[in-house]
């Protein structure tokens, strides 16, 4: 079954950071990461550097900690094999208490039932099910397993409709996760 979603009404979009700048895109938002957040992001990145993940090529060259780009390759033996995708992490001030904003960067977006063509991902751990014990590694692994288990390349059934009303920040969409896989 496909996940249903609805856009959160204004003012309920979660943490104060986001409320104050609801219309800005993640790229433009000014955010000052807390010391804890910086340390934690550095640990996350070190962790990936030391124990690389299969089909995942992180971009360590960025000069800011707020954004982190990962180039993904379609997992072996999956329908996405040899395809290339760009995944971007955007960390909020209170990371890891707040979930990072994670989305694919068009046009490098996989055609998947739970991934909208603007790159927004319907994945429970990026929303309500986020836990501060998760990190870059666990998010990448979840997304890779989402791709591996997919049997058919298709866009979400409400993709067109979502494109018309999608907020720039996927966290402002309230997702209903119907699928255990999702």
């Amino acid at each position: 079954m496909h996940p249903k979603r609805r856009t959160r009404p204004d003012g309920q979009s979660g943490a104060d950071v986001r409320k104050s700048t609801p219309s800005q895109s993640p790229e433009k938002r000014v955010s000052a990461l807390t010391v804890q957040a910086r340390q934690r992001i550095m640990r996350d990145i070190q962790d990936i550097r030391k124990n690389p993940l299969q089909s995942c090529l992180p971009d360590f060259s960025a000069d800011s900690l707020e954004q982190f780009t990962v180039y993904l390759e379609g997992p072996k033996d999956s329908i996405y094999e040899e395809e290339k995708f760009t995944l971007r992490f955007h960390f909020l001030e209170c990371y890891p208490l707040d979930a990072p904003i994670v989305q694919f960067i068009p046009p490098m977006v996989p055609k998947h039932e739970h991934i909208y063509s603007n790159g927004h991902i319907c994945l429970s751990i990026l929303g309500d099910e986020w836990s501060p014990a998760l990190g870059i590694r666990s998010v990448v692994m979840s997304i890779l397993s989402m791709l591996s288990s997919s049997k058919e390349k298709k866009t979400p059934p409400d993709d067109d409709e979502y494109m018309l009303e999608a907020p720039s920040n996927p966290q402002e969409t309230q997702w209903d996760y119907h699928d255990a896989e999702c």
């Binding site: 309920q12 979660g14 943490a15």
Partner: peptide
Amino acid sequence: CFTAHLKQLLKKG
């Protein structure tokens, strides 16, 4: 971390 996590959850509604 534990308290901060709980606070954040409740703050987010």
